[in-house]
Amino acid sequence: MPGLQHLRRLDRYVVPVLILAGWEAFSRSGALPAALLPAPSTVVWAWADWVFGTDGNTQTYSGHWVYDMASSFSRVLAGFAIATALAVALGVAIGWSRATEVVIEPTLQMLRPIPPVSWIPLAIIWFGIANKPAIFLVFLGAFFPILLNTIHGVKNCDRNLIRAGAMVGGNNRELLRFIVLPAALPNIFAGLRIGIGSAWMLTVTAEMVAVKSGLGYVLWDSYYFLRYDLVLAAMASIGLLGYLSDLGIRAVMARVLHWQRNTTIQGGE
């Protein structure tokens, strides 16, 4: 990318540091009651206790962070995995076969705008309380971005590659497996990145529903007890884990799509 040379290493931290400094100043100024908008230092203090159990100020959550993180992470992983499998399979079918598209796609497009929150009552009826409805809601969030990007990737597959495949004697199944799917992978990965973001965003919604642990659960419980410092710490935790998950997907992407190294802007990163 052009123009990176003149940015020093520390430049990526300027904006976050400025925001944090401004926030700390504002909180200490007393314009709002301290408990309503805790200063970053208070949030960090609460977060430290939540993770390490430093001084017990988060009471029942002291030292519980790893467990909460693991609970949320396992739910996100499960929902995301199911969403990926289903969305890629359906996406390839819809992108490849006009008949499938005509039959299935309108229904999916009608389901897509329904916000996951509104699925909560049905989710509880179908799956009960505890992990399953939460996984279902995460699934809903991740499913549609992956589906749409897969369809796009399949439909945009270079027709000439298909011709080359037909020429070497491939039947439809072989064309799908050896040409269409690999050609669609860049788009599928784009969908996966969006999907994992949605999945983490829905953690808060999903964990409203009678789970016993997790970052979203802590967020709601803390809100109930007016512990806004913990609410902010929970939000930051979710953001952090979302970022790390995205890094993970990008690492896989770099490996699988290594052949793009010389041909795309992204490959040159």
Binding site: I124, G128, M208, A210
Partner: peptide, 18 residues
Amino acid sequence: FINIPNPSDHLQALRRGE
């Protein structure tokens, strides 16, 4: 102790024997 934050979920929890 099991926390079910939303009272509307109480019915289902009992019905499913959870």
